[in-house]
Amino acid sequence: MSNVTAVPAAPSAEALKHFEDEFTFETDCSDVHAAAQSGGFDFVLLDVRSHQLYNEGHLPGAISLPHGKIIASKLEAYPQDTLFVTYCAGPHCNGAARGAVRLAKLGRPVKIMAGGVTGWLDEGYSLERALEPA
């Protein structure tokens, strides 16, 4: 018996609910890219890394707001039902989740973009550099 099979898989009905529910918590690089290519976002894309990393390269259309700086006053310009999508460096980083927690605590709808910058680059998409420092 391997470590893979040592714990049995969930019953199919439970697995279905679990995997369907994941889509309410996250999106992926391809879907974010498609939204950007369609002419605009119907969400706010937040780069929750440091301003320095944002300036070195970020997803097109992203706003720099480090996760530790997410507070109510920074969100006042956005209607309460605005969906925020957070991303960070990649799967090795928990900044996107930290940002999502802060947004959820403020009562804001939020999803994480799975893969972060690493996933974005792996998909073959390019980054923008900041024209003016964030």
Rank of each mutant, 00 (worst) to 15 (best):
Y87F: 08
L103H: 02
G107E: 11
G116K: 06
T86W: 00
V110H: 00
G68Y: 02
T86S: 07
R102H: 11
K111W: 04
G115T: 14
D81R: 03
N94V: 08
D81I: 08
G99H: 01
P79K: 05
G68N: 12
F84R: 15
Q80I: 04
P79T: 10
A89L: 11
R102L: 10
A114I: 14
L83P: 15
A97P: 14
A100E: 04
V101G: 07
D81N: 05
A104K: 08
P91N: 13
V110S: 09
A114M: 15
G90W: 07
P91V: 12
E76H: 02
A100M: 13
S73K: 15
V85R: 07
G116T: 09
L106N: 08
I112R: 05
C88R: 04
R102Y: 00
A97N: 03
L83S: 07
G115Y: 06
N94C: 11
E76C: 06
V110F: 03
F84D: 15
G116D: 06
C88G: 13
R108T: 12
V85G: 14
V117N: 03
P109Y: 00
G107V: 14
H67M: 06
R98W: 02
A96T: 06
I112C: 02
C93Q: 08
V117A: 05
I71C: 09
V117S: 02
I71Q: 13
I70S: 00
C88W: 02
T82M: 05
Y87I: 06
L103W: 01
G90Q: 12
A114Q: 14
A72R: 13
G68I: 13
C88S: 13
H92M: 11
A72H: 04
I112H: 01
Y78W: 04
A72I: 12
G99M: 04
H92S: 11
A89G: 10
Y78V: 13
A114K: 15
L75N: 05
D81T: 09
G116M: 10
V85C: 13
C93H: 04
R102E: 14
C88M: 09
P79D: 08
A72W: 04
G95C: 11
Y78T: 10
H92Q: 09
Y87A: 01
A104S: 12
A96R: 03
K69F: 01
A96N: 05
E76Y: 03
G68Q: 11
Y78R: 08
A77Y: 03
R102Q: 11
C93P: 12
K69N: 07
H67K: 07
Y87N: 01
G115E: 09
V117D: 01
P91Y: 00
H92V: 15
R102N: 11
T82V: 13
R98V: 06
P79F: 05
A100R: 03
D81A: 03
L103S: 01
